[in-house]
Design a protein around this nucleic acid. Sequence first.
DNA 1: ATGTCCCAACTTTTGGGA
Length: 252
Amino acid sequence: MKVVTWNVNSLTARWLRVEEWISRHAPDIVLVQETKQNDDKFPFAALTALGYECAHYGQGQWNGVAIASRVGIEDVQRGLGDDPEARFIAATCNGLRVYSCYVPNGRSLDDPHYEYKLRWLESLRVLLRDRDRAQPLMVGGDFNVALSDFDVYDPSVFEGATHVSAPERAAIAALVATDLVDLGRHFHPDEPSFTWWDYRNGSFHRGWGLRIDYLFADATTATRVTDAYVDREARKGEKPSDHAPVVAELNW
DNA sequence: ATGTCCCAACTTTTGGGA
């Protein structure tokens, strides 16, 4: 079974790229972030034609998360606690519980949005702490945090910025401490494996990236994962998202 | 290092967000 997480930066703008990627890679479960559309724009019919059942949690022009599955989809949960924004959707697909997460950006360390980001991550930690440990789980999404300096192309550029601060990193570490494995890093301990490059400055071609998108699995499920990787090819070409997909393959 | 992309709208240019 193949699971992918991808921040598409508007599914409306990205549909041709997403459709092409799905057709080529045939993932079983797709975790999407930043659909930036309401249900009336979500491509339910086109995804059904490709063999996928979908659950979408949209919020107009901002945020928006979705799950597409060709192995069934049930027990859909939209939203994280009392969060008013469309940043979390969960479902069970073929016995695997999956979360699609779009963590708040934070903007800057002195912005109220930064505190919102930390509160959001704490809510996710509580959900993970209290989960049914007997149920296999994969958590994916855009976490807007680079876990360590190795996940940053040049840490000096980000001094005093979000995405790298100690509280943010501690919040992600606290998620992992609920018995999760960072699949991308587990399979590629010696490669930066960036997942995001700014559209500006020619960042992609200069290698100026960050690893801020993750697929996590509980420790038991992680033993069934055979590979996890970033598909950098998806960041190339016409009208790419600024994020690349993160893929995991597992024996299921 | 702020050079791009995406969206909405007091829409053909600007501003907010990432």
